[in-house]
Amino acid sequence: MARAWVFGDGISTDLLAPGNKLKLDPPELARHCMTAIEPEFPNLVSHGDIVFAGRNFGQGSSREQAAVSLKLLGVGAVFAQSFARIFYRNALNLGLPIFDFADVAEFSAGDHVDLDLDHGTLRNKSTKKSYDIQPLPGELMEIVKAGGLINYLEKQFNTAL
């Protein structure tokens, strides 16, 4: 059962992937994700859990490891009131679904949630409310459908050959 994790505004790439740990291999680096403010996050987060956050999620560095760490820990998607631009592009390029979402306040830590990407719906089973998810624009959807930018490019280069 997927659960909700709820964080505040301005979650930075330094919290998601600390600079002084960037030499570590991605799985080890992911063990430090968010630990500065939520020490047990890497231990307790389960596959498919959803992160909810306030404004400007992923602000700071261009380091892609911020999105990679969430993905490696099994986070199924991030819903935030807004995202920092580079994090937004990184997440989609890596196939981590992320959504601009106004109703973050209606979710509490530990809520049971169900995300259906195919039908574009998010359900909060704890409050019994459902939400429509905005689809991604244009070329972005193609990148995500291909499973990230590298797969998308692979198809493009192979078509060109």
Binding site: S62, R63, A67, I86, R89, N90, N93, L149, Q156, F157
Partner: peptide, 29 residues
Amino acid sequence: GDSHSPTGGAFGAYVAGYGATDMVGIVAT
């Protein structure tokens, strides 16, 4: 490939920062 790339905008160029996978696409295409 760095978040402080906008620095170059001081010269009247459009300079933006990108993550590593984005940059792969850019240096390849």
